[in-house]
Every structure is written in C-alpha cells, then in structure tokens.
Computed example of a mutant assay.
Amino acid sequence: MALIDVKTAAARMSSLVAGLDEATARGDSELPGWTRGHLITHVANFSRAFTRQVEYALRGELVEVYDGGRPARDAVIEAGADRPAAVLVEDLNEAVTALLAAWDRVGPEDWSRPISHRNSTLAHGIDATWRELEIHTSDLGLGATPDEWPASFCAHLLDFLRPRTPNGVHLVLRPSDGPVWENGTGEEHVLTGTLTALTAWYAGRPPTTAVKGPTPELLPYP
C-alpha cells in the first residue's frame, strides 16, 4: 500500500465525524459494547501511540505501544468516551494529523526499521494504520460500510487475517468481482459473494450483502 491510501482513509473518517452531535456520539458503534465515543477515543489513542512508534523508530529506538500495556489502553478509552462530541472530534483530528505527519517523515530507507508493535517494522506499522482507519470508519455506523473498502485493502486484509482460518479447514472465497482466495487445508468450505462482503465476514464485520456457503467458526482476530 501507499501512504496516499492511509491519507484517503483518514480523510473519510474525518468527514464522517465532522459536526458530530451529542446524541450521535453516545450512540452505539458497530462494535459490541462501544459507543462512537469509545471508538473515536480509541482511534485517537492509537494514533498518538503510533506517532510515538514512528518517532522512536526514526531515532533507532523502541518504545512500548501503550504505556502500561492493554489495561492502560482500555482505561484511557473508558475515561475518554463520554467527553463532549466537539472535544472527541478535535482530539481525533489532531491525533490523526500528527500521525500522518509522522508517516510523512519516513524515508525509503526507513521502512525496515523495527518497532515494538507486533515486533515488526515501520512497513508493517503503516499497514496497521491503514487497517485501523479503514475498518473503524465502517465501525462508526455513520453511513460508511465495508462496501467502500478498496479492492487493494480487501486483498491486504484477507492476507493479514489468514490466522483466522481454523485448523482442518480449506477455506475458499469466490468473489463475484475479484480473484479466488484460498487458505488452510482440510474440509473444503466454498463461500461466494462480493469481495467486500467476503472480506467483511472474514474480518468479523457484518457484510451488507449475502455471503453464501458453509461458514466455519473463525479463530480470533490475530
């Protein structure tokens, strides 16, 4: 993927939350147990954490993704979810803008630099940023759906999520508008539908059009 894809996803999210009112901010997102305030707080928090990942990597250093790990991350989300709608939007926009500026500073020779996130590299980190923005834009429940995911994003997400295919299953996705995708060995499960619907199902999101075929119970998100 290219940085322009990340910037496009960021712009789409920003446009959706512009003018967010209090009732909408308190409304349920597509993620169970999370309001839109929770989700916006999470993306802002993620953006700050990844800005730090980039800045430290460019100095040749590693830093924990979230100070205090997952418990601290979750506590920040809970503490920030009920902030006024205008504050939520301002915080999101400022955090995402800073993250995009950090990615702009990454040169061609920097992508192999290590980061703490998944013990990976900056190249993997920008992919994580892309996933975070594209998927959570749909999760906001403000009109955007996985149907808007670009084909290139679907291909990337399916590949990233390969560990979700359970043992003993040969999963075959046959989209009506894209190439066949296969993973795993064992009992064959052939699913059909649009590329975005099949990708949404594999990502644990409700597809907006039908996915047909025997759907296996997927493993947790990696």
Rank of each mutant, 00 (worst) to 15 (best):
L195R: 14
G193M: 12
R164W: 10
T196H: 04
P175S: 10
V172T: 05
N167V: 14
W201L: 14
T199N: 06
L173V: 06
T215W: 11
G193Y: 07
L191D: 03
V172C: 01
P175K: 04
A155T: 14
G168S: 11
P166T: 12
K212E: 09
V180Q: 15
R162E: 09
A197S: 09
R164I: 15
V211N: 08
V180T: 15
L198A: 03
P206H: 06
L191T: 01
A210V: 11
V180A: 14
P175M: 09
T192R: 04
H170S: 05
T196N: 10
A197Y: 05
T165P: 01
P179M: 10
V169I: 13
V211W: 06
L171G: 08
A155C: 08
L171Q: 04
P175N: 05
V211A: 06
T165L: 01
H189G: 04
T209V: 10
P175I: 13
T209K: 03
T165V: 09
E217I: 14
L195E: 13
A210S: 13
F153H: 05
E217C: 03
L161V: 05
L161T: 00
H170Q: 07
G178A: 15
T215I: 12
L198S: 01
L173R: 00
C154L: 11
P207H: 03
T185L: 02
L218M: 10
A197K: 00
C154H: 06
T194H: 06
G178V: 09
P163V: 13
E188S: 07
R164Y: 11
A155M: 10
T208I: 12
H170V: 01
F160T: 12
T196P: 00
R205Y: 08
V180F: 10
P214E: 13
G178Y: 10
T165W: 00
G213M: 06
A197Q: 05
C154Y: 04
T192K: 04
V211K: 06
E182F: 04
V190W: 02
L171H: 02
A200N: 07
L157D: 08
V172A: 02
H189W: 02
R162D: 12
L158I: 13
T215A: 11
G184Y: 03
E188H: 01
H156G: 11
P207L: 10
T192M: 03
P175E: 08
L195H: 03
P207F: 05
D177A: 02
N167S: 12
L157F: 07
K212Q: 12
V180R: 15
E217M: 13
G168F: 11
G204P: 05
T194L: 07
G204W: 03
V172K: 01
V172E: 03
T208N: 12
L218K: 05
S152C: 07
S152M: 09
G184K: 04
T208E: 15
E217D: 15
S152N: 07
R164K: 12
P166D: 14
N183R: 08
P175V: 08
G168D: 12
